[in-house]
Design a protein around this nucleic acid. Structure first.
Lengths: 340, 340
DNA sequence: GTGAAAGCGCTAACAA
DNA sequence: TTGTTAGCGCTTTCAC
């Protein structure tokens, strides 16, 4: 049985209220008593019961984090960032893995309500405006990370349009003229925005008439490997992949079939995985701030939690940046520049 | 303000205790009333206050998870496994990132004590027998994952000796006779066990007299890239790396310098990262069960939490397995076998 | 500056 | 089967 406030009070022959005040740094306690109480508490290894405290203060100092999948380095880093910020600001985090299932998300939310979390950070793939509206009505603060589902709550996202736009511009500079795209789930904000950037860049360069190849596929290595064959057969001179893993598949196909990258074909990915620069043909890709996205999400949530005024939801877009490596011929470009 | 048990009781003109019994599936309530109460609770969106409940039942149904680093896919997967199992069995998980710092670990433990978690899963790099002993004295259940610090608590680890042993045997079969090792932090169980396996395999094959090169280094891509040069200069015909990232560095060095792998040099890693099979020279490595390690840790902890009897700490070793790909010449070996 | 008392929302022992 | 009562450990009025 852990030691309680009343135990300290009895031992020191003071009132529990005095102990509480002393320990919480409130005024109304003589310095002498305060020192005495703090010293004794430390000596006895006193740990305040957060449960009892939360019950009465109506704030648990707990934040819920709902993630589609902790196995993905992308989400894990968001979690890491959010957790770091939260802990540093006196909040603890309850982790919920939704396994990309809407039903599990619903359960997660219910659990978090029961735990009386002060707020929730949700990274959701499935649309679920209903559940979020319910949370809104309950007065639970929510911040959406990496997606926008409901306009009622703040959201922190990576600017997929800008990231993809810059990458496509780079590909054009690298003399790609027939770019094929392997995209992901067409219902996600991510895919839609990158597709939109593709269309805009093509139009800008008068390539809109091209019969550009756009395919939607699972975002896997195997998808990349399999699709590369037909895309190249049909005349693509370059392939944009929805993420680096898919690009790795394309790269592997090329190497297995003695197709030189970037000479014969140029390949680009998205995400900037840790290993994307470590392979034999370093991958040109777009770097997204993952850890920082989590930090910003936690920061926004805690700000909303601690402000007195009514909060107006904000939409924060983080800017990704191009990582030009060799798979699109960056080295050639650099050489060309030097020649000028 | 969320609806409370007493609100339901008043609306239905019954006693709060009856509502509690009905909702918790306890006996002593007529089926009619139970249905009525459940229906009304659902309709009103009642969410039991876990704080109040935990305060009285003395169990929070909360598990603490202390991790060195959520950014690492290795630890993230352990977390994922533990979380999956815990949620499925009615426990929620509070996540603590220790950032590989012993001081932070100490703080994490204190926070978890305050939250009155029922138990803790700890993945720790730094030795801290003291803190664990304190937890033991407090009666808090702990399970150690991926390391063994205190014999007082159960631990779940990957069998590093067996994994490395099998890999070194494989390397010998692949005609490696001068194996250099790039190891990691010499104070970890992991490094020690793999080193021990190395010595035993060398001895077994009468290679113990070789002036084998053993270096300790940061487990980074750059370490691998830099160290490869000198190790090969000094006559190594093969390099074992403490993990796949280091191996990627070695591989990159070889490719940049037109050293053929596996013909001129053989390279092996450890961990079996997702991408290790996706690169142009697929990496021979050892697969460790990460997700499952987390599952087993959570399972063990919950078992200990729910048993009445005094628990005797167990040590569970998960068996890794060899993933023989091309970087050690597996294909050559296969060919040789066919020739027989 | 300190103490007494009430109560957060729930469960569990005991009565009826 | 149902109700009454007490109390988990803490904070917070309100007195003094």
């Amino acid at each position: 049985m852990p030691i309680r406030i009343i135990d300290i009070a009895q031992a020191l022959k003071v009132n529990p209220a005095t102990v509480s005040r002393a320990l919480n740094g409130q005024q109304g306690v003589s310095e002498k008593k305060r020192h005495q109480i703090i010293a004794y508490s430390k000596k006895m290894g006193y740990r305040p019961n957060a449960l009892a405290r939360s019950l009465i203060t109506k704030q648990s100092k707990l934040i819920g984090l709902i993630l589609p999948d902790l196995n993905s380095p992308y989400y894990a880093r968001i979690a890491s960032g959010a957790n770091d910020y939260a802990i540093k600001h006196g909040y603890n985090m309850i982790l919920c893995n939704s396994a990309r299932s809407r039903e599990t998300e619903r359960q997660n939310i219910e659990i978090l309500e029961q735990q009386r979390v002060d707020g929730i950070i949700i990274v959701s793939l499935s649309a679920m405006s209903d559940e979020l509206t319910e949370l809104y009505d309950l007065g639970i603060k929510v911040v959406q990370a990496d997606n926008i589902i409901s306009p009622r709550f703040s959201s922190i996202i990576n600017n997929n349009y800008a990231g993809a736009y810059g990458l496509f511009e780079h590909m054009i500079k690298c003399e790609c003229s027939n770019i094929a795209c392997i995209l992901g789930n067409p219902n996600t904000h991510t895919t839609r925005e990158r597709h939109r950037a593709f269309n805009d860049v093509m139009k800008k360069h008068g390539l809109s008439e091209n019969k550009q190849q756009i395919v939607y596929a699972d975002s896997t290595f195997e998808s990349g490997y399999k699709l590369a064959a037909s895309l190249l057969d049909k005349g693509a001179d370059s392939i944009f992949c929805i993420n680096d893993i898919v690009a790795l598949g394309v790269l592997k196909y090329c190497q297995d079939n003695h197709i030189s990258v970037p000479n014969d074909v140029k390949v680009a990915g998205y995400d900037d995985l840790e290993i994307s620069g470590m392979i034999n043909i370093p991958l040109t890709t777009v770097h997204q701030q993952k850890h920082y996205l989590g930090v910003v999400a936690a920061k926004q949530l805690i700000m909303e939690l601690e402000t007195e005024e009514k909060v107006i939801p904000v939409k924060i877009e983080l800017e990704p940046y191009l990582v030009a490596r060799e798979s699109c011929g960056e080295k050639l470009i650099k050489g060309a520049k030097t020649d000028n």
